[in-house]
Amino acid sequence: MKLSIPEREIMSPGHLACQGCGAALAMRYVLKSLGKRVIYSVPACCWSVIDGPFPYSSIGVPLFHTAFETAAAVASGIKAGLEIQNDEETRVVAWAGDGGTFDIGLQALSGAAERNDDFIYVCYDNEAYMNTGIQRSSATPWGAWTTTTPVKHFKKERKKNIVEILAAHRIPYIATASIAYPEDLIKKVEKIKTIKGTKFLHIISPCPPGWKSPPELSVKLAKLAVQSKIFPIFEIENGIKYKINIHVKKPVSVKEYLKPQGRFKHLTDQDIEHIQQDADAYYEWLLKQEELSNE
């Protein structure tokens, strides 16, 4: 039987991720596809801990730990450094959390995207600042509890749409992915390997301690996020050509996705209805974008 997921393991066990960490799975899959000829730029985030303390490292490829807001700029520098030394082959990855991407690192990311610097930017999105103890980020969804959006004052702002921000830069390739759909994720990384310029990959990555969900449900939650239309799986070429990669034919209700997560347990039926409408509307809008792209 031919496996669609490469058998090779680049990342070692023994890393420091929590049980059920979506970000650890995301890394494992991406590396399986990328292989060893790659260099990572990793800003402050859970992954600055997960990789292992000095002198250990678990990802099996070179990794430059860097300051919180610099993932993209460091990646640009690495790529330029390699190219001027006649190495066009080695791929460069900026690997950052949602805080390092949506918030503090957005300026550097925008700069690199505008220059269309040739690297892969991966945002593993666990929807809060998890490394510092679950504070809200602009990727935290409406309704969620975090330590800075306590229950009575749960987050009242919508999640920032990072993908649309990147699309506005007209970079060659943008995709969303979920750790529950590894084949789709791997296919996307394979495609990214053939594209020059800035590539952006947005991976939904459940976080049991931050989401207050049982570790064994992480993959299931990453699947429900997709099937409830909360986190649609699609790609955008050149900032304008949309393609939904996982069409949700028989959607589950958002309630099913929200219920196992303690961070949403205070929500009323009315609140959940609000989230449902928002998810449906976004999915409708995406379908339209896809339709327009096919015209």
Partner: peptide, 28 residues
Amino acid sequence: MKAKFIKVESEHSAMAASMGASATGARA
């Protein structure tokens, strides 16, 4: 000059990009 010029969007990124380049063994 046989050099790459990265027109960064801030000084913070200027130093960050210089670090990335230097870490590969290039003169920054």
